[in-house]
């Protein structure tokens, strides 16, 4: 693809003109083609042992999320207990990758997850709208990191992006990355507000160039959230970025993924588009809450041979 021929990426972000030239020079996304390719990948049949593997892999990739105004420390603690041991009756179920909470609840989550492998992610930068001054956003990030968050989910300024102020968005991501310190930075593009797949591709590259460790589809507060065509475009971006730089960046899909079947279809897409190396919680995540219960029900079904209902998993 033509982006592969492009030389030095360091020059790209030198100034507004070169950044714009690069982003607008990216090949356009054939929307019909992307939808067709995504629909085609969704027809793969994943059964028996492959399905069991896919379910456990998907569980290990979940960022178990609660982002409600009504979140209480008690709710976060019970979520953390579930994250560390998703099925209290079965120790063979892997822990999820992380829990994802608002910054003021990070300390509660860190305390509850001490001694486990589960990370603590926090949304920051005036999530979900991102409508605040840069100082306020960076303060939000530093707060979360100081409280012990190992991963920060930032939102880009969609207004600036849509107005064409790419350097402003770029600089905000760079500044946020600097404020994160050792914490991993996930950049939320909120593709539901970007209108086109072309914009999703440009925003993906912008976030990758600015140093985001992950690119993430959505906040979960806007519909549509993660859709297969958007996931396809973002996975292509990290694949091409790896081809150009040799560096692997991650993708996180968030919002609206509730059924195991959808999750397994996305794993197929990850494998086929980005490659097998991305089938790893370090490079691919699901931001979800009810998905975990559905995966557990599927796991019960595979183990026992009979269907289970919502009585057999926790009420979130």
């Amino acid at each position: 693809m033509s982006t592969l021929a492009r030389p030095d990426l360091r020059d790209v972000s030198r100034d507004d003109t070169s950044l714009r030239r690069f982003l607008h020079g990216l090949p356009g996304v054939d929307q019909v083609g992307a939808e067709g390719r995504a629909a085609g990948l969704a027809t793969r049949s994943i059964k028996t042992t492959s399905k069991a593997w896919a379910i456990d892999t998907a569980i290990a990739m979940i960022d178990l999320t609660t982002l409600e105004g009504a979140d209480t420390p008690g709710k976060v603690r019970s979520l953390c207990a579930k994250a560390a041991r998703p099925d209290s009756s079965d120790a063979s179920v892997p822990s999820v990758a992380a829990v994802c909470v608002y910054p003021d609840l990070v300390a509660t989550a860190v305390l509850a997850l001490r001694g486990t492998s589960v990370g603590v992610a926090s949304v920051a930068t005036a999530f979900p709208s991102g409508r605040a001054s840069l100082d306020t956003k960076l303060h939000d990030v530093r707060d979360a990191v100081a409280a012990g968050a190992t991963e920060i989910d930032m939102v880009i300024d969609r207004g600036a992006f849509l107005a064409g102020h790419y350097v402003q968005v770029f600089d905000e991501i760079v500044a946020t990355k600097a404020a994160c310190g050792a914490a991993h930075l996930k950049v939320i593009l909120e593709t539901g507000e970007l209108a086109t797949l072309d914009n999703a591709r440009r925003a993906s590259w912008l976030a990758l160039l600015a140093g985001g460790d992950f690119i993430k589809t959505s906040t979960g507060k806007v519909s549509p959230a993660a859709t297969p065509p958007v996931a396809l475009v973002m996975l292509e971006a990290v694949r091409d970025y790896h081809a150009m730089t040799g560096e692997r960046r991650g993708v996180k899909l968030a919002g609206g993924i509730r059924a195991s079947k959808e999750a397994v279809r996305y794993l197929v897409m990850v494998n086929e588009v980005a490659g097998q190396a991305w089938l790893d919680p370090a490079l691919f995540r699901f931001g979800a809450s009810s998905l975990l219960n559905d995966l557990l029900l599927q796991r019960h079904k595979l183990a026992s041979g009979s269907y289970d209902g919502p009585d057999y998993v926790t009420v979130d």
Binding site: G305, S306, Y307, D308, G309, P310, D311, Y312
Partner: peptide
């Protein structure tokens, strides 16, 4: 049998 075994 599927209906009889369904735990919900």
């Amino acid at each position: 049998p599927w209906l009889a075994g369904h735990r919900d």
